[in-house]
């Protein structure tokens, strides 16, 4: 177990010993170790790196340190990043939310990670760093397979930069029970009047978390065409229906113990319809973001 106490030290340990498994809250890693699914030669404990544990806002963007816990997100970021805060509230139990981190969620890169859909919907950017330098990867390009990401063996996740919400955000998750549950399917939506775009994120319904780009483009175009950003008129039912269809079509779910592929598509349709309804209602009421 290596326990660096600064970011620079963490990077040099990572460079020298890339086999060490980085651990933050341990809510994924410890389960794998306890079930003997993984036997890394050692652990790289990132919990003592102070740079990771904070978040800042600069120029309309939240820079969220990789070690910020879900509990902190729920407590601090409900106004700036309501979608991420809603998703964080659905993670595990209070104990898990006190330990688990958004950076750890990215590191695990599970298709079911709860933080991923709102980060995708927000167009967030993951900041990766090694002793050789820093690079920025849009979260939509970060995941490359089931539990695989572009993270190189000498890199660590420094932070994730998330543009602040300018309008309503929603997150919805179907589980096999109402709490402390992994997603059967989840969906995040950002209605972004500031940038005149719509963001989406789909969880647990494809090999990686992913966006629904056609749905985003379609809805943004329809809103634009109807001048609804300005008028805040109700969205026609066929538009909502088509949006939901396009969201479901963007997924490529599988049948597994938690649910069937067809249920997941159906659930995405329902979640997309409802979340768009709630978000647009909120926008029409002019509730400031």
């Amino acid at each position: 177990m290596r326990r660096p106490t600064s970011w620079a030290e963490a990077l040099s340990v990572r460079a020298a010993a890339p086999d060490l498994l980085p651990i933050a809250g341990g809510t994924d890693v410890m389960v794998e170790l306890n079930f003997d699914r993984r036997r890394p030669p050692g652990l790289l404990d990132l919990t003592r790196v102070p740079e990771l544990a904070t978040w800042t806002v600069f120029d309309g963007t939240v820079e969220l340190g990789a070690g910020v816990t879900y509990a902190q997100v729920v407590a601090d970021l409900g106004d700036l990043l309501p979608g991420l805060a809603t998703a964080s509230r659905t993670v595990g139990s209070p104990q898990i939310r006190n330990r688990g981190t958004v950076g750890g969620n990215l590191g695990s890169a599970s298709p079911a990670g709860d933080a991923h859909p709102p980060l995708l919907a927000a167009g967030a950017v993951v900041e990766l760093e090694s002793v050789h330098g820093r690079r920025s990867v849009p979260v939509s390009e970060f995941f490359i397979g089931v539990k695989r990401s572009v993270l190189e063996p000498d890199e660590l996740i420094r932070s994730v930069r998330v543009p602040c919400a300018t309008g309503p955000e929603q997150f919805s998750k179907v589980g096999t029970r109402n709490a402390m549950v992994i997603a059967v399917a989840s969906f995040a939506l950002r209605v972004d009047p500031g940038r005149r775009r719509v963001g989406t994120g789909i969880g647990s319904a494809a090999p990686t978390p992913r966006t629904a780009p056609e749905a985003e483009t379609f809805l943004a175009r329809e809103i634009e065409a109807a001048d609804a950003w300005a008028s805040r008129d109700p969205l026609p039912a066929p538009v909502v229906r088509r949006f939901a269809e396009l969201v479901a079509a963007a997924a490529s779910p599988i049948d597994d113990v938690r649910g069937s592929a067809s249920y997941r598509r159906h659930a995405l349709t329902v979640m997309a319809t409802r979340t768009l309804g709630w978000a647009w209602d909120e926008y029409r009421q002019g509730v400031p973001a």
């Binding site: 659905t90 919805s172 998750k173 179907v174 589980g175 549950v181 409802r274 709630w278």
Partner: peptide
Amino acid sequence: MPGGVANTTHGEG
């Protein structure tokens, strides 16, 4: 609500 804080319904369905 059905679904709890996972926010799947506000009464719909």
